[in-house]
Computed example of a mutant assay.
Amino acid sequence: MSVAKKQYKRVTTNSVIEMKANGEKISMLTAYDYTMAKIVDGAGIDIILVGDSASNVMAGHETTLPITLNEMIYHASSVVRAAKRSLVVVDLPFGTYQSDPKEALRSAIRIMKESGGHAIKVEGGKEIKESIKRILNAGIPVMGHLGLTPQSIYKFGTYTVRAREEAEAKKLKEDAKMLEKMGCFALVLEKVPAKLAQEVAESISIPVIGIGAGAGVDGQVLVTHDMVGMTHEFNPKFLRRYLNLYEEMTNVFKQYIDDVKSLDFPNESEQY
Rank of each mutant, 00 (worst) to 15 (best):
V192I: 05
H61V: 03
T96V: 05
S77G: 15
L196I: 05
I153M: 09
D218V: 01
E268H: 01
I135G: 14
E199I: 04
E247Y: 11
I120W: 12
E18A: 01
E190L: 12
A31G: 02
G51N: 05
E248Q: 15
I257N: 03
G42V: 02
K155G: 08
V161Y: 04
N267P: 00
M1D: 02
V50Q: 03
V79Q: 08
E168P: 10
Q198V: 00
I39E: 01
Y154P: 00
F265L: 00
S115V: 06
T96Y: 13
D100I: 01
K177N: 03
I132T: 05
A176F: 01
K38S: 09
V3T: 15
L196M: 08
K129D: 07
E190C: 11
G219K: 01
M143G: 04
V57P: 08
S78P: 00
S99M: 14
L148N: 06
P266T: 02
V161N: 02
V252L: 14
E62M: 09
A43M: 13
A167M: 08
A194W: 04
N244K: 07
R240I: 11
K6F: 09
M249L: 15
G95V: 03
Y32F: 10
G229N: 02
E202N: 07
I67E: 12
V192D: 01
I206K: 04
K171T: 13
T160K: 05
R240H: 15
